[in-house]
Amino acid sequence: MVEHRPWNDIIAYAILTFGVFIVAFPVYLAVIASTHDAATVVNGNMPLLPGGHALENYYRAVFVGGSRTSREPVGHMLMNSLISATGIAVGKIFISILSAYAVVYFRFPFRMTAFWIIFVTLMLPVEVRIYPTYKVMADLHMLDTYAGLILPLIASATGTLLFRQFFMTVPDELLEASRIDGAGPIRFFIDTLLPLSVTTIAALFVIQFIYGWNQYLWPLLITTQDSMQTIVTGIKKMLTTTDELAEWQLAMATAVLAMLPPIAVVVFMQRLFVRGLVETEK
């Protein structure tokens, strides 16, 4: 350690506390707004301490939905978000671990072609090709289905690259040993490779779950019925009525509910999250 000055630490604490304040304040305000009644929120003099309408607001948001807009109750949207986020994470892991296994552990004609075909998808996010993708989905009759919410978002190379990288670090001796034991490629995959990949799978799951949960543009396009809406798209629709009529306290309760699952994942699985984040971006 170089020179140690007490004031240096004090400055560091001050700056970091300020940072946490910036980071936390918008969320704090949303939580507060979700505990007041509509009039208190709209008049512009909202107190900075919780009010007494929390139960009522959350009950209405989750089970009833806004009265003026007669939207879908949030409980159902939460379910849709959970299904599509889990589907995206599991689907991506499933297709990418298999293709990475093929590319790393086999030699066959067009191996590198297949790898490049997958690799190119890394460059173009779904936002660039939304309408053509929408048209494909419409032709396949997948509008307003879970398959429509999930499948286009798992077409990407991040998972394949991550698993490829991990498989390259697995010692060759393991393959030779299991071959001596008479194991074929499927045995080796299930008994040796899969158990070794558990942490990588978990890290990828955390990242992809958050990615899937937070999707906005795609669910917005692909769902026409309120019953298929995810929670992130639902909030915006609560606010599309004119501002004076928008029920901000319900929108804020919904925002809090929409933030809760991914934030819980990040905070409670911080180690896996950081690992997944750093490794998928390499």
Partner: peptide, 22 residues
């Protein structure tokens, strides 16, 4: 501090927008 700093990553962009316009 690290834990407190990283969690906005988990907030959906659309939700972040709603928080700031509020």
């Amino acid at each position: 501090f690290k834990t407190f700093m990283i969690w906005p990553y988990a907030v959906a962009p659309a939700v972040a927008g709603v928080l700031w316009i509020f």
